[in-house]
Simulated assay, not measured.
Amino acid sequence: MNVANAITLLRLCLVPALAYFLVQESYALAFWAFVIAAASDALDGYVARRFNQRTSIGAVLDPMADKLLILTTVLGLAWLKVLPLWLAALMLGRDFVIVVGAVSYRLAIGPYYMQPTVLGKVCTFFQFALLVTLLADAAHYVDAAPLRFSLSTLVALFTVLSGAHYVWLWGHKATRHES
């Protein structure tokens, strides 16, 4: 256990609280839980790199915490009709394909650690931006109407591009392994 992993665990602990706030339609509390969790994602990465606190458990917990945070928020906002169902399905479908691909690779070929790609990071950035904007709108902190279409379009675009890129990378790696 180190500081970076403790921050990641804090993010994991915020996920059930976020889910509860969404179910209760307590959008202000959901907004702040999401903001704190999103900030902790940047902070734990910085601490791990800056103070050389990278660990194998952190390499598993960090993306798992990110996926659970996004999954919970997307499902909650889609259920509450704050996020369009088609966009929620696209976002969750991408993550499903990535996870299935990683597990399939692991079972068929063996362990392989894939670094997040630039497209994946851009996709995650726009997903977080959209979700925080929708939560802020639902909490009546901002009027997201002017941003909703643009952010949704960017999320859809980068979700498809990064998902296709990960499929290509995993497929290319698997094909090279077989040769």
Rank of each mutant, 00 (worst) to 15 (best):
Met64Ala: 14
Tyr141Met: 14
Gln115Asp: 11
Met114Ser: 13
Gly171Met: 03
Arg106Ala: 07
Trp168Lys: 09
Trp79Gln: 11
Lys67Tyr: 00
Ser150Met: 10
Val155Arg: 05
Leu83Gln: 06
Ile57Lys: 12
Ser162His: 06
Leu71Glu: 09
Ile109Ser: 10
Pro146Val: 08
Phe31Trp: 11
Thr8Arg: 09
Ala88Pro: 04
Leu119Ile: 08
Ser104Gln: 07
Ala30Arg: 07
His172Asp: 15
Asn52Val: 08
Gly163Asn: 00
Gly171Arg: 05
Pro16Trp: 06
Thr133Pro: 00
Ala139Trp: 06
Arg50Leu: 07
Gly163His: 00
Trp32Arg: 09
Leu80Thr: 10
Phe128Met: 14
Leu92Ile: 09
Val132Met: 12
Ala156Leu: 06
Val160Trp: 04
Val60Gln: 12
Gly76Ser: 09
Gly163Ser: 00
Ala156Gly: 06
Gly76Asp: 07
Ala102Gly: 01
Ala144Asp: 03
Arg94Pro: 06
Leu9Glu: 02
Glu178Tyr: 14
Ala6Gly: 12
Leu29Arg: 11
Leu9Lys: 02
His140Thr: 10
Val160Glu: 00
Arg11Tyr: 02
Ala6Asp: 08
Ala37Met: 04
Tyr46His: 12
Ala139Pro: 03
Pro111Thr: 14
Ala42Phe: 15
Glu25Asp: 05
Ala164Ile: 01
Ser26Phe: 01
Asp95Glu: 15
Leu154Ser: 04
